[in-house]
């Protein structure tokens, strides 16, 4: 049994009458990439700020790397790396100056921990004389990650590293995280992108300050039990409106090039449902109809949990 690098017990925090997080319980094991998946306003950043000792909880307790987030906050801050959601480096310092600054704050140097950042830093090193403010979005992310790593932390907190970043840069960023995991780093990553859940070892789905589910991505999708179909025709908007009227339809929503149709229950056989959906759409004058069973994704599960 590996040991827990992050533990949270009944953490709650309110701002005035707004409850930002409510009774959060979770534990992250050593070497795990743990995803906190939820939309803006779900409480992700509040939880990050509490776990990194920047904000006191109203109630509950938490430890990071075995250190209490309240009593041991000074030591805690030396063993964690925190990359906030908003780009928070010095825009008017160069790439290299930023890195040097963060290294010196933690009493170390670029040279001392160069190995750890090398795979990432080499990609931005050609621009080391450039001011951070003049970097592209993807390069800013890489620099921020280097600055977060330069003091060799045990636990990384990455708050929405993918927000506002294009799909290609996001994918590169996740490749970097997986490399870091191989070196034993523990990571808590938050994201509003449901498809990134698949890249985590375990995830917590969070909405309105509460965790709706915690499991492996596979475990989450296995909990989705109702029949799900992927359906398409030439007119998506009309298709969704019509499918909601289909007898036995529990829910219907757009999902990429298909609409996902969730049925109340498996009445007879999947095949029968498929052909009856097809016939139903024909009667509604849809063209180029395609109906097939669909594998539920984390996003399907999130939508279902939100509606319950």
């Amino acid at each position: 049994m590996s040991k827990a690098k992050i533990t949270a017990e009944n953490l709650s925090k309110s701002y005035g009458s707004v409850q930002a997080i409510k009774d959060i319980n979770l534990s992250v094991q050593e070497g795990e990439i743990f995803g906190l998946i939820g939309p803006d306003g779900a409480g992700k950043t509040t939880l990050f700020r509490i776990l990194t000792s920047l904000l006191l909880p109203d109630s509950g307790a938490a430890t990071v790397a075995g250190l209490d987030i309240v009593k041991d906050y000074k030591r805690l801050r030396t063993v964690i790396g925190y990359m906030p959601g908003r780009f928070s480096l010095y825009q008017d310092l160069t790439v290299e100056e930023n890195l040097e600054f963060f290294a010196s704050v933690f009493g170390t140097s670029i040279r001392e921990n160069y190995d750890l950042i090398a795979p990432i830093y080499v990609q931005i090193e050609p621009f080391k004389e450039r001011r951070a403010g003049a970097l592209s979005g993807g390069m800013k992310q890489k620099l921020a990650l280097c600055c977060t790593l330069i003091h060799k932390p045990e636990v990384l907190f990455l708050d929405e590293p993918g927000t506002g970043v294009d799909p290609v840069s996001r994918k590169e960023f996740w490749d970097m995280l997986r490399n870091l995991r191989q070196q034993g780093l523990t990571m808590l990553v938050s994201t509003p992108y449901m498809d990134e859940a698949e890249l985590c070892d375990r995830v917590a789905l969070i909405q309105k300050g509460e965790i709706m589910a915690i499991d492996t991505p596979k475990g989450i999708t296995a909990s989705f039990r109702q029949p799900l179909f992927a359906v398409r025709s030439d007119n998506m908007y009309q298709l969704i409106k019509d499918l909601r009227e289909f007898e036995g339809a529990a829910d219907c929503y757009a999902f990429g090039e298909y609409a996902h149709l969730k049925l109340e229950q498996l009445s007879e056989s999947w095949k029968l449902s498929e052909s009856s959906i097809h016939d139903f759409l024909l009667s509604k004058n849809h063209r180029n109809i395609e109906v097939k069973p669909a594998e539920p994704t984390v996003e399907d599960c999130f939508i279902e949990l939100m509606k319950n």
Partner: peptide
């Protein structure tokens, strides 16, 4: 311009239905 960035999956779809409706 990135109207649904950071929005939950359910609201994101409701937003797209507004887009479809406007297009219709």
């Amino acid at each position: 311009d990135e109207p649904t960035s950071g929005v939950d999956p359910l609201t994101r779809r409701q937003f797209w239905e507004l887009i479809y409706e406007a297009a219709a």
